[in-house]
Design a binder for these strands. Structure first.
Length: 624
RNA sequence: GCCGACUUAGCUCAGUGGAUCAGAGCGUUCGCCUCCGGAGCGAAAGGUCGUGGGUUCGAGCCCCACAGUCGGCACCA
């Protein structure tokens, strides 16, 4: 429709110029937009405002001249000049209602566009270290990242989803050492206290709990094992309960086999096996919120030498930078990248004076790989990484790809329960595992909540509010609209829920609506409102992709659900004793229902939320 | 000190290219079931858009300063 209006405006301008009502000027863009206020028509052109300077004429006068020469069109009911020079278009009912047929014809692809022109975009997100479980903050990146990828894909970009696994640095050894120490402690407790494995594990978890509670260390006798653990590993340790659980896994698998093994055998063994277990848990967590990746990229791969050339990706990247004169060495032997030449506030070390690579070294190689394989890179990071942006963008620019590396910063999640912050002492750390949260609140409500705010807004995640299954929770409001429609369609088609499950909703809708519903019968205001909302969907998705703002889908879906409920209240769809309805009108309204159903399903799919055919309350999940 | 995000209704937040931008949900109050799913609908009350300047014919929106909240400033990852 915007194309049609654009064309009409161009013709009108040309006609007005030919008639001498307008001076000659070029129209680069007719500025077809959607007015915010629905009383101003469905579309507006700002061509008069835009051309005022070129034409040396008041915008209102230009607008009038253009409107006077506007060609007739069956789709346009009337054209009107308003305000300082807007040309407003009011659509004819038939053109308006066409959107319902369009949605039904396009089905799963309703709203798809080619706005991205097939640009190859890689989105890297979450990328949490494989040394612990994901927490709520990571959950937010999962929700935003996956939804953004869906939206980009739908808007015509060629998207690749990637999780970068930091499996190479010293944190991996810290991880292995931590498990190793806990393994030994389990053995010690079993022997000293004469306990079985599970009792010993519970004992150590209690010991840690005592340590967390005893912040001023007034009762050190209640947490000797935690103290010993800290003393041995110092700050270089992971203290979470999940480390004890991992140590338990190795007792279950291998018994006391590693008790007498040398530390330099045991720790690396546990590091590698623990890594696999931990990564598997992260993948499971992602699966449970329907967050998928195309590739899990290992940091280690940058250190692996190519069997033919004998050179690792990291080495070849630095050889390339060396050749371009972007590296220099200081007297102490450290190797630096000249990122300051490209906007960074200081140069960065890539090889330490002791000869080891810094973590930034592999990031440099990774950046090279990304920018040479994709047209564009989007990296979603937490707000705490904001200092990192400039250096990686500087590296990208140094490599000859300025402006191709975008970082989307996401603000943090405050975890609450009944309005109170979930207590997180320094000793406990920030860990509330995300998978436990999903289990408590459910994947739909969890994802919906995490996606529903702009990413540069900190959000409160109140566990009790999110798990609440009532009208205060927008996810159920939206899902209810979908379920309600399915129920109406089933009733109209005369099929049961079970039968509908067999055939699928498309077949049910087909049977309910029948062939060629007469959409011209739809003249009620609530029907027009639905048409207006749905006709925004395609550009909305494209806008979400362009602005990296998938959260807007949640606003859309609430608006659509609200429009539907109002329509349902105002317009009888199926005949009843008290409110009979013409069969043709009934079919037309069923077509509206079907169109809304399709739109809700598509939109919810984009944000990874299910569109249930039937609502049910999970009684076991009620607070009381 | 420097860098970034945020500050809009009682609460949580939208406001996409300045004009047709003072909005939504929740909460509160009052209404609506002989009805296709009431997890619904309607109505009311509620805000000088953090403060002060500037640009402009026109500023929640752009620029500057200030205040407050949060986060970040390693040869750690």
């Amino acid at each position: 429709m915007p194309e049609t209006i654009e064309e009409l405006v161009r013709q009108a301008v040309a006609a007005a110029q030919a008639a001498g009502d307008l001076p000659a000027f070029e129209v680069s863009d007719a500025g077809v937009e959607r007015p915010a206020d629905t009383s101003h028509g469905e579309w507006t052109s700002t061509v008069a405002l835009r051309s005022a300077r070129l034409a040396r004429m008041a915008p209102a006068k230009i607008a009038q001249a253009v409107a006077d020469h506007m060609p007739e069109s069956a789709e346009i009911e009337k054209v009107e000049v308003a305000g300082p020079g807007f040309i407003n278009f009011y659509l004819a009912t038939a053109a308006h209602n066409e959107i319902f047929a369009e949605a039904r014809a396009e089905g799963d692809n309703f709203g798809r566009s080619d706005a991205g022109h097939g640009e190859k975009v890689q989105v890297e997100f979450i990328s949490a270290n494989p040394t612990g479980p994901l927490h709520v903050g990571h959950g937010r990146w999962a929700a935003i990242g996956d939804s953004l990828c869906n939206v980009l894909d739908f808007a015509g970009y060629d998207v690749q989803r990637e999780y970068y696994v930091n499996d190479h640095g010293s944190q991996m050894d810290v991880f292995g050492n931590s498990i190793s120490e806990r393994y030994l402690q389990i053995g010690e407790v079993m022997q000293k206290e004469d306990m079985g494995l599970d009792d010993a594990v519970a004992f150590l978890i209690q010991d840690r709990e005592n340590y967390i509670e005893d912040e001023d260390d007034s009762k050190p006798e209640t947490h000797p094992y935690m103290d010993a653990f800290n003393e041995k590993l110092g700050g270089n340790s992971y203290g979470g309960d999940y480390i004890i659980d991992l140590a338990r896994e190795f007792w279950l698998a291998d018994g006391d086999k590693w008790m007498d093994a040398p530390e330099d055998k045991r720790a690396p063994e546990f590091r590698e096996r623990g890594y696999k277990l931990q990564l598997a848990r992260i993948k499971d967590t992602c699966d449970s919120v329907r967050c998928e990746f195309d590739n899990w990229k290992s940091e280690r791969s940058f250190y692996v030498k190519d069997p033919e050339t004998g050179v690792s990706p990291i080495e070849s990247t630095f050889a390339m930078l060396e050749k371009q004169g972007l590296l220099y060495r200081t007297d102490d032997g450290a190797l630096w990248v000249k990122t300051t030449d490209f906007g960074d506030d200081k140069d960065r070390v890539v090889v330490k004076s002791n000869g080891e690579y810094t973590y930034f070294a592999s990031d440099v190689a990774y950046t090279w790989e990304k920018l040479t394989n994709y047209d564009y890179e989007i990296n979603i990071l937490g707000a705490d990484h904001h200092g990192y942006i400039r250096r990686v963008q500087a590296v990208g620019a140094a490599m000859g790809f300025p402006g191709k590396y975008e970082v989307l910063l996401g603000q943090f999640v405050n975890l609450l329960r009944n309005g109170e912050p979930v207590r997180m002492s320094k000793r406990r750390g920030t860990m509330v595992p995300f998978d436990e949260l999903i289990e408590e609140a459910g994947p739909d409500a969890t994802r919906y909540t995490l996606i529903s705010r702009s990413s540069n807004q900190t959000i409160d995640f109140d566990i009790e509010s999110v798990r609440k299954q009532d009208s205060s929770n927008p996810v159920y409001y939206v899902q209810y609209a979908h379920a309600r429609i399915c129920s109406i369609l089933r009733r109209a088609a005369g099929v049961t829920y079970e039968e509908a499950e067999q055939t699928g909703m498309e077949a049910v809708a087909e049977k309910a609506v029948g062939p060629d519903p007469d959409l011209a019968l739809l003249v009620e205001p609530t029907e027009a409102e639905l048409a207006r909302t749905m006709s925004k969907f395609t550009e909305l998705v494209a806008g979400c992709a362009r602005d990296r703002a998938p959260f807007r889908i949640t606003h859309y879906v609430q608006e659509l659900a609200s429009n539907f409920h109002r329509f349902y209240n105002e317009c009888q769809i199926l005949p009843s004793e008290a409110r009979p309805i013409d069969a043709a009108l009934s079919r037309a309204r069923l077509a509206v229902c079907d169109a809304v159903r399709i739109n809700l399903e598509v939109a919810l799919r984009l944000i990874g939320v299910s569109a249930p055919d039937k609502m049910y309350r999970d009684e076991t999940n009620d607070s009381e």
